Simulated assay, not measured.
Amino acid sequence: MFLRRALYYWQFTAAIMLPLWVVIARGIFGTTTGWDIALYIVLGVILGFSMLVVAALTVARKRVRDARALTGRDTLVLAIWHLSVILFGFIGAPWVAAIIVIVTVGAFWNAVWTLFTETRDRVKVAFTIPDFAPRTAEVDAGHYDATAPGQGDVIIVDVEPESPPTSR
């Protein structure tokens, strides 16, 4: 539970820190030209925006907001995603970049699908009408008086019997 709750709060900080980590670490550990840094800055902005989108979709779920913790699947996806971004800071290999792209797409669709299914289930429950027993007893025609408890108000129901239809 601690890891799930920590990742819940970390995902917003990670949207700024992890792209910044990639730019700084790639500058220290292996960039040879200034154009590489410019490319990492542009890709860092895209990565940060995608992390914010996934975080917003995750927090939009009532179950996550109420618990202030991610689900197990969210924790697994985000841990793989964030660890691959941290690894890319050290190793600028194309296969690590490919893993980041694949996990980014997977994290987005995981967040969208989970939000959709949880919202659908909540809406189904909200629109389910309870099954009440039908009333079979008829009310006799007449005059009924009732007082509301503690209010002193009088409710009067005056029901007149139906008259048979007249023919002309």
Score class of each variant (00 low, 15 high):
residue 51 M to A: 08
residue 94 P to Q: 05
residue 93 A to L: 12
residue 146 A to E: 08
residue 91 I to C: 09
residue 162 E to P: 00
residue 87 L to D: 04
residue 96 V to E: 07
residue 104 T to Y: 05
residue 129 I to C: 06
residue 71 T to Y: 05
residue 77 V to P: 07
residue 66 D to M: 06
residue 164 P to H: 01
residue 107 A to S: 07
residue 98 A to G: 08
residue 70 L to S: 02
residue 142 G to M: 01
residue 28 I to F: 14
residue 40 Y to V: 09
residue 158 D to V: 00
residue 145 D to W: 12
residue 77 V to R: 05
residue 168 R to E: 02
residue 41 I to S: 12
residue 118 E to S: 04
residue 48 G to N: 08
residue 57 L to W: 01
residue 135 R to P: 03
residue 93 A to Q: 10
residue 92 G to R: 06
residue 30 G to P: 07
residue 121 D to E: 08
residue 36 D to V: 13
residue 11 Q to H: 15
residue 108 F to D: 02
residue 166 T to Y: 00
residue 146 A to S: 11
residue 97 A to L: 10
residue 154 V to R: 11
residue 166 T to S: 03
residue 150 G to N: 08
residue 87 L to M: 13
residue 63 R to V: 10
residue 121 D to L: 14
residue 34 G to T: 13
residue 27 G to R: 07
residue 139 V to I: 13
residue 114 T to R: 15
residue 133 A to P: 07
residue 103 V to K: 01
residue 41 I to A: 15
residue 157 V to M: 07
residue 72 G to W: 08
residue 103 V to D: 00
residue 57 L to S: 02
residue 102 I to T: 12
residue 101 V to F: 14
residue 142 G to K: 09
residue 98 A to D: 03
residue 132 F to W: 12
residue 126 A to T: 07
residue 124 K to M: 11
residue 152 G to H: 08
residue 54 V to R: 01
residue 5 R to C: 09
residue 124 K to T: 12
residue 149 P to S: 06
residue 96 V to H: 04
residue 43 L to P: 03
